[in-house]
Amino acid sequence: MALASMTGFARVEGAAGPVRWTWELRSVNGKSLDLRLRLPSGLEELEGPLKEQAARVLSRGNVSANLSMQRDQGEAVLTVNEAALEAVLRALQLLHRRMPEAAPPSLDGILAHKGVLELKEPVEDEASRAAFLAALAASFDTALVALAEMRAREGAAIGAVLGGHLDTIARATAAAEAVPARQPEAIRARLKQQVEDLVGAVPALDPQRLAQEAALLAAKADVREELDRLTAHVGAARKLLAEGGPVGRKLDFLAQEFNREANTLCSKSNDVALTAIGLELKAVIDQLREQVQNLE
């Protein structure tokens, strides 16, 4: 499966009989899939099926779907609203009795009253409405596919960036392995000097206490576990990128683990070169996590 971003846009037009419509879909980052539909009045029955369609195509993201519709006016029929006309005529008769000198109203004036003339759409039968709703749903599905394709293109670009960040982390980890201060001889020399400094500061230091202090210094200087975990995390992240699909949450968890190891490495480091590598790791891990937030 391909990687997918959570951001994208799609626009699809459709038509059935006298009705033309446009679907516009936009998606941005989200913790889960949240589809917000804006449908014209009278189409509320589509909400459930459309959300099910979206869930079959998308896994995460805040998605807004807007449907705009236009109907050809040539199909509408101009009719007289009898009730509204009667109300207008009664009002005119009342006014005429009160003001008999007033000129009688014209036909145009009567018909101009709001509600007297109405444009009525032809009545749909059940089969026609079902076919219309099916056409809208099929058009929505086309828009979903277009949105997913755009998200996949962006996902591929993000995947390439993430791969570059993982390469940088791997190189920095290898550089930390090779830091001269991490070599056994250098560690022994540093511990020897630190122990001598302790003995010089406290001549009567208990030998057992001295051994404990030396062990603590050795443990603090050892970043073997952190480097091993960084290497393992790089391998796990590369595997997820290769698998594709909705792996954003898993990669975000790995990014947190990367950051934890880099922080520990910096806190344990007592060498300038190793500290510089730790800071480089923290910077690239921040960039990695920022990109991961965009993945489905």
Score class of each variant (00 low, 15 high):
22 T>R: 15
80 V>M: 10
52 E>G: 09
260 R>E: 00
156 A>E: 13
33 L>Q: 01
244 G>P: 01
139 S>I: 07
47 E>I: 00
55 A>E: 05
23 W>N: 01
242 A>S: 11
117 L>A: 08
189 A>M: 08
104 P>Q: 15
244 G>V: 01
105 P>I: 15
96 H>P: 01
93 Q>I: 08
4 A>R: 15
152 A>T: 13
96 H>D: 07
85 L>Q: 13
121 E>Y: 12
176 A>H: 04
134 A>H: 13
67 L>N: 07
60 R>E: 04
130 A>N: 06
239 K>Y: 10
250 K>W: 03
215 A>H: 11
68 S>F: 04
72 D>M: 08
143 A>E: 02
105 P>R: 15
145 V>P: 06
116 V>Y: 09
47 E>D: 01
82 E>D: 11
201 A>I: 03
96 H>M: 07
84 A>H: 13
75 E>N: 03
234 V>E: 00
115 G>Q: 09
175 A>K: 07
152 A>L: 05
97 R>D: 11
290 E>D: 15
27 S>P: 08
48 G>S: 13
66 N>A: 09
73 Q>L: 13
124 E>A: 08
259 N>W: 02
241 L>K: 03
180 P>Q: 02
157 A>L: 12
100 P>D: 06
283 A>H: 15
3 L>F: 01
248 G>P: 14
30 G>F: 05
89 L>R: 10
32 S>F: 13
285 I>C: 01
100 P>H: 04
130 A>W: 03
26 R>S: 12
151 R>C: 10
46 L>Q: 06
130 A>E: 12
16 A>C: 10
80 V>W: 09
8 G>N: 01
281 L>H: 05
180 P>M: 03
41 S>I: 05
254 L>I: 14
268 K>T: 00
122 P>A: 11
212 Q>R: 12
278 G>D: 02
25 L>D: 02
234 V>M: 00
275 T>E: 02
217 L>V: 04
124 E>H: 06
296 E>Q: 12
291 Q>D: 09
113 H>E: 09
101 E>F: 10
126 E>A: 15
290 E>G: 02
272 V>M: 12
180 P>W: 06
20 R>S: 15
238 R>S: 02
71 R>T: 14
178 A>Y: 04
126 E>W: 08
210 L>F: 10
162 L>D: 04
284 V>W: 02
238 R>G: 09
61 G>K: 03
150 M>A: 08
188 R>V: 12
138 A>S: 14
122 P>Q: 14
55 A>I: 06
227 L>Q: 12
33 L>S: 02
283 A>F: 14
241 L>Q: 02
65 A>E: 01
258 F>T: 00
180 P>C: 04
28 V>P: 08
195 V>I: 14
154 E>D: 14
183 Q>V: 06
262 A>S: 06
71 R>L: 12
293 Q>E: 15
64 S>K: 03
187 I>P: 01
235 G>C: 06
240 L>S: 07
7 T>F: 10
50 L>E: 00
287 Q>A: 15
30 G>C: 07
184 P>T: 05
69 M>H: 02
90 R>Q: 15
274 L>H: 00
